[in-house]
Design a binder for these strands. Structure first.
Lengths: 216, 216
DNA sequence: GTCTATAAATAGATAGAC
DNA sequence: GTCTATCTATTTATAGAC
């Protein structure tokens, strides 16, 4: 449960933000139809009527979340805005580049489990959040990593092949690992390994997998 | 929508099976709480009362699905029961082994999208299906592939490292690819590639990634 | 901004006739 | 095996007082 504050009179904006926050949490945990407005109200420590004062109906509340989430973060930080990653890309330090990509992905995923769950729910329920996310984030990620791979292929460092398939292979390792740890197998029954080890291993496997010269 | 048969009097068993089938479809599309018994009844072309004649309540219907799904298929076919895969494993044909694993995974995933969606819903909603699946299928898969990798490490063919992390890397590529194609990005906006190409590429990347000698 | 009370709609579940 | 009718509980949503 979240806050559950009682008898605290908030300003309209505060209450609005609080409700959004609570709704994100609850929707991400139990999905849209699995969450009741009653619960949201109780969690905020106010009556249901107040919830409907802030949001005309449940759908509007959901849409407010989408706007908020899709714009304000995304998955928080974009790799292409990370200075170190940018630098590693420039200097063509292949291993450090992919290792850092993996490590920062894991860190961000862990920071925003609620968002990841929301995304999954959204994808399953066919809401727009997941599509917006693909467009605003994943598509660019493919470009960002894909163009680096292309570059290194031109350098003669990586072997030939569709860069986007390579990207999918790499992202697959990352996303699947986070999804396992955070959603599917939080008890770590399949595999319990530190994010650092995972990042290092994945970077090495991937790099050896697409590089012309093998490095150990 | 499914069948929507009308005025057809079925035997008890037929009706029972039909309801299960419809419920799987609807639950997998909209989740448990997102599906109403009314809808199920309408879809089957009978009254709600009939649904409750077959299943005491909604939960029981859900459990019946779990039993049915978790036991009778799983994800249908187990790789360790596939003759060809078994043979490739014996003969240590590394590339063919992993390639075939990938290809057969994609084929099975595609055949059972409903089950995959059900699994995701189940994981998000915290039902037991996903846990059962992990135990009955994924855990064994880790063992199956992991032990092969161990073997090949002992042979001196694969480099050192935790076999289970290697497995995660490989399964990551496969699962992520299917999840993208079947659930997250069915329109193939990120990447549109044939399963054959994907399987081949993933097997090659992975194998070069963990092998001592590079092969192209 | 907040409440209580309540309406309206929908969901799950049952009774009893055929 | 099937229906109609109905009941109850829950959920969404509104009214009106403070």
């Amino acid at each position: 449960m979240i806050e559950q504050k009682e008898n605290i009179r908030m300003s309209g904006d505060e209450r609005h933000a609080q409700l959004l926050h609570i709704a994100v949490k609850l929707f991400s945990e139990k999905g849209f139809s699995g969450t009741t407005t009653r619960e949201i109200a109780k969690c905020a420590g106010i009556s249901e009527a107040m919830v409907f004062r802030h949001f005309a109906n449940k759908d509007e509340l959901y849409n407010a979340i989408l706007d908020h989430k899709a714009c304000s973060h995304g998955l928080q930080s974009f790799p292409w805005e990370d200075e170190e990653i940018h630098h590693l890309r420039e200097t063509k330090d292949d291993f450090a580049f992919f290792n850092r990509l993996a490590a920062s992905a894991f860190k961000n995923h862990k920071k925003d489990i609620a968002f990841i769950r929301l995304l999954l729910h959204s994808a399953l329920e066919g809401h727009e959040l997941s599509e917006t996310f693909l467009e605003k984030f994943v598509l660019r990620l493919y470009d960002f990593i894909g163009s680096y791979i292309e570059q290194r292929q031109a350098d003669g460092a990586f072997r030939d092949g569709d860069p986007r398939i390579f990207v999918r292979a790499f992202l697959g390792m990352l996303v699947h690992h986070s999804l396992n740890n955070l959603v599917l197998d939080p008890k770590r029954r399949m595999l319990d390994v530190s994010d650092e080890d995972a990042a290092e291993n994945f970077a090495r496997i991937f790099l050896n997998g697409i590089r012309k010269t093998t490095v150990r």
